[in-house]
Design a protein around this nucleic acid. Sequence first.
DNA 1: GGAAGTAGGCACCTAGAGGTTCGTAACGCA
DNA 2: TGCGTTACGAACCTCTAGGTGCCTACTTCC
Lengths: 147, 147
Amino acid sequence: MATSTAAQKRAQAKVEYDAFLAQCPSRKLLDRIADKWVALVLAALRSNGSHQFGADCAGEPRSMRYSELSRLLAGVSQKMLTQTLRSLERDGLITRTVVPTVPVTVTYELTGLGLSLHQMMRGLKDWAETHMDDVLANRATYDNRVA
Amino acid sequence: MATSTAAQKRAQAKVEYDAFLAQCPSRKLLDRIADKWVALVLAALRSNGSHQFGADCAGEPRSMRYSELSRLLAGVSQKMLTQTLRSLERDGLITRTVVPTVPVTVTYELTGLGLSLHQMMRGLKDWAETHMDDVLANRATYDNRVA
DNA sequence: GGAAGTAGGCACCTAGAGGTTCGTAACGCA
DNA sequence: TGCGTTACGAACCTCTAGGTGCCTACTTCC
């Protein structure tokens, strides 16, 4: 039943392309850091209590408690914080250590890998801060032209 | 009615933090490049027909036709391709030029801004390629410990 | 003359990201 | 005695990014 050749070839190409994407490391990385809170957690663990996204980074990575992170990233729900921390730990980007005090204390800290990732994110941040205004300006004029 | 102080203060902090996030340029950039096809389109416009994510970039940015992109990024639906291209054009990252031949021809090309963004993305890609294996290895051992 | 290409628009549908709420167990504090 | 904290787990709910399918006019190839 070689009904359609062109359509079938497209479908074939699509499958192959999807397979290619599924194993592309860059894509995996994008999926990782695009999680809403990942970047924030990374930045927080690198900071010392300030809210600014990357305006600190002076000194070595800090270890932080769950509740401390929760307060710092005020917008995060407890569920998402837990989920994000777990996934980061799973990927070896942070370490989780439990101290059995009376109310259990859990601290999180960046690993070397996490640190290097955050380093990379700073490059991203730099680009954002230097070019994002242009982007927004372009967007505004575009919208005006259309509207 | 100062019923609850602690809970209210948390709510307050959350609102402020959300407002802070809403205007954070880094976050806007992340939202931008995390769109499923943005990175692929950028890479495609920078390539010359190869599928490899960034394995080319030899030479100046190419201009590409809609159908050409559609074939190259085999997995993308027409809707998403159109949508992605429009939003990229809106942000001044690519240009769209219509040539009124008999079947209208539309070509897309990277702008300087788009080019610099792609440059930044390459840094991301480099990180991915050097460190992603570690991440995946960590993930595997973590999963084994738990399961 | 039907299939295919050219560049999309429009409407509907679904899976999953992320949020909300509730509960825990043991303790401090007013 | 009842709220607050510590670090979550489980159920439930919502919203939207992204996918699918169908449509257009016009043309050209087999």
